[in-house]
Amino acid sequence: MSAQLNHTIVWCRNKQISASFLVEILGLPAPEPFGPMLIVKLENGVSLDYYDNDPPIASQHYAFLVSDDDFDAAFARLQARQQAWWADPCKQQPQQINDYGGGRRVYFDDPDGHLLEIFTRE
């Protein structure tokens, strides 16, 4: 059997705010409407489908493998927004960059409290 992740729904309070946040930080094309959702397409064919939902929103984790140059650009955008970031998913190492495996990674929250991660090495 061959299986690939195609899409996942991201529950949020305001799909426009949340989807726009992600595309701004990652430098992605604008989200596209599809029915009641806003779709953020990633380079590998997977999409995040933002869907409005009433609170409470259960926090999820979304990790994005990026190139070194894309990491630099996304990290600069985080800093320009004065966005808090951490080197670890438990948020015990604020304003630090994790160098696990010879790469770089940081964790940060989106507007709905989902924990996002950008990293350069698997």
Rank of each mutant, 00 (worst) to 15 (best):
S2F: 00
S2N: 10
S2C: 01
A3Q: 12
L5T: 02
L5C: 01
T8D: 05
I9H: 08
V10A: 04
W11P: 08
W11F: 15
C12G: 01
C12D: 03
R13V: 15
R13D: 11
R13C: 12
N14M: 04
K15D: 04
Q16F: 05
Q16Y: 03
S20H: 12
S20Y: 06
F21E: 04
F21M: 06
L22W: 15
V23Y: 02
I25L: 15
L26T: 10
L26Q: 12
G27N: 14
G27C: 15
P29Y: 07
A30N: 12
E32M: 13
E32G: 00
P33A: 08
P33K: 02
F34L: 13
F34K: 14
F34C: 03
G35K: 15
P36I: 02
P36N: 08
P36T: 04
M37P: 00
L38N: 06
V40P: 07
K41M: 10
L42D: 06
L42P: 12
E43I: 02
N44Q: 06
N44W: 00
N44P: 01
G45Q: 05
G45N: 02
G45H: 02
V46C: 03
V46W: 00
V46M: 07
S47H: 02
S47V: 00
L48H: 02
Y51V: 08
N53R: 14
N53V: 10
D54K: 13
A58L: 07
S59N: 02
S59K: 08
H61A: 15
H61Y: 14
Y62R: 08
F64T: 09
F64S: 05
L65C: 00
L65N: 09
V66W: 01
F71L: 13
A74C: 04
F75P: 02
A76S: 11
A76I: 05
R77F: 03
L78E: 09
L78S: 12
L78C: 15
A80S: 13
A80H: 13
R81Q: 15
Q83G: 05
A84T: 14
A87G: 06
A87R: 05
D88L: 09
D88G: 03
C90H: 06
C90R: 04
K91T: 10
K91N: 07
K91P: 03
Q92E: 11
Q93L: 12
P94T: 14
P94Y: 06
P94N: 14
Q95I: 11
Q96D: 03
D99C: 13
D99S: 14
D99N: 14
Y100V: 11
Y100E: 10
G101L: 15
G101P: 05
G102T: 05
G102V: 00
G103Q: 06
R104F: 12
V106A: 09
V106Q: 09
V106I: 14
V106C: 14
V106F: 11
Y107S: 12
Y107H: 13
D109H: 15
D109V: 05
D109F: 15
D112C: 11
D112A: 07
D112F: 08
H114W: 13
L116C: 02
E117Q: 13
I118Q: 09
I118D: 09
I118R: 05
I118A: 03
F119N: 08
T120G: 00
